[in-house]
Amino acid sequence: MIRLPRIIPILQLSKRQLVKTIRFRKPTYVGDPMNILRIFNDKEVDELVILDIDAHRNERGPDTDYIQQVAAECFMPITYGGGITSLEHADELFAAGVDKVCLNTSAYTQPELLTSIANKYGSQAVVVSVDARKRMFGTYTAVIRGATQNVRLKFADYVRRCQNQGCGEILVNSVDRDGIMSGYDLNLIKTVTDHSCVPVVACGGAATNLDFLSAVKEGNAAAAAAASIFVFQGPHRAVLVSYPDRKHIMEMFDDNCRQCQNVA
């Protein structure tokens, strides 16, 4: 069997409802998270990322009771992000059955939190969501607090700092491509993988299965994440939960490998 890159649905939660944003704004109601989770579980998805998009706003911390109910339905690895500001939050989430925690705002405002979670649970359990906005001349700025505040560090320096502090995986999320379904920002993904020694998960803009291939082959991502493509269907964005057939993904990556060999 060839080892396939992980293909990861991202679920955005807002007040216990599943939503989908566009450029980090305009959350559209998608459905009941539990129903959709069960479908993803039945489809044997590689992994799930669950992001509570307004947990940071009301400073209430993660909705751990709900996450526990969610985790009880999932028999694949789960990453949770949203409102994590302390080691105690991480403790509660791991006890609830989450495998990795994902930090965005706290990764910048209190980088030592990455270290303390990594020391206790291992760096593989610490993900940083590097949300990025494109600047002129192909450069990027990392953003926090739901893309409302800029990180005052050079982009590459910030990516490196997160890893030095103990982050073991980076979810690189293009704000400009969020919900747009126009393909990944491969330049952004490449910029992050060039400055990373940990696995990088591409996110933001996937429209077709071929985008997953590009993220891995051109962007050097270890995994490809997406939201819209797994919950919407057609030009009117009708809600339909889907996940690519494993055989299809295998053939896609396999064909590509064979083509590479032919060229070489």
Partner: peptide, 30 residues
């Protein structure tokens, strides 16, 4: 990359009681 963080197969020894010994059997590693 290391850590090895992915789904992968396991080539099980034929007399192992733990495995189904099927081609589609795969597991999550970290």
């Amino acid at each position: 990359p290391v850590p090895h963080m992915s789904w992968n197969s396991a080539e099980s020894s034929p007399n192992s009681d733990l495995f189904a010994h099927s081609a589609e059997e795969r597991f999550y590693f970290v």
